[in-house]
Write a protein that binds this DNA or RNA. Structure first.
Length: 201
DNA sequence: ATAAAGATCATT
DNA sequence: ATGATCTTTATG
């Protein structure tokens, strides 16, 4: 019953819709025989060259963000603040630099491995409630930049968890105050009331 | 060549 | 509130 999302899911020209539809899907990593997974409960949409918060804004095209300009369905992973690996799903067709940042997941599978990677011992609130904590828990780093989400050990699955429009809270994105008018666009999406969303106000 | 700024987190 | 930590990017 688990189904990896097809390429067409990512190729569409509507990144905020895709960001909403990713809520409730399951992000899975399967590295070295260690399978870990979490349900996506928070995302942010980054809308290509016209979005001042996006790494591709104003047509910026560099070694770091090159994968954003490729076809949808690949991972864009970059290092933030020198310490944190942030995971994005590239969307839209080749030439359109859209992406969805995954900001939080709810732990589902491989709890022991996630705890180990996070160097947490017993109970773990906050285990995956944040864009950098979830990558650490799932073992995702910049070495996975450019990974094909349909062919690699990182994938997104439909596991039959349904989300209604009314379950989604849309607010401005986090940490993009520098982005002028685009800073206030309601492109951060959360499952209402889910305890695993990120702590950011 | 140099400098400054980050799509954050854990701790104080 | 603040420090950690370092790559990427812009600028001279």
């Amino acid at each position: 019953m688990n189904r990896t999302l097809p390429r067409e899911f990512y190729l569409r020209d509507d990144v905020t819709r895709i960001a909403r539809e990713l809520l409730g899907k399951t992000l899975v990593t399967d590295f070295r025989g260690s399978l870990t997974a979490g349900r996506i409960v928070e995302t942010e949409a980054y809308c290509g060259v016209n979005d001042r918060a996006c790494h591709a804004n104003n047509g910026r095209r560099t070694k770091r963000n090159e994968v954003m300009y490729g076809a949808g369905g690949y991972a864009y992973v970059y290092l933030c603040y020198g310490l944190h690996h942030l995971f994005n799903v590239v969307t839209n067709v080749s030439g359109r630099a859209d992406a969805v940042l995954v900001r939080a997941v709810e732990p589902l599978d491989g709890l022991a491995a996630m705890l180990r990677r996070r160097r947490m011992s017993a109970s773990a609130p906050r285990l995956t409630a944040g864009p950098a904590t979830l990558t650490m828990a799932l073992g995702i780093t910049t070495r996975h930049n450019g990974s094909d989400l349909l062919a690699s050990r990182i994938r997104v699955e439909e596991r039959g968890f349904t989300v209604a429009d009314g379950d989604i809270l849309a607010t401005p994105r986090v940490g993009v105050a520098y982005a002028g008018d685009d800073a206030v666009r309601p492109w951060r999406f959360r499952l209402k009331g889910n305890p695993w969303t990120s702590p950011a106000a």
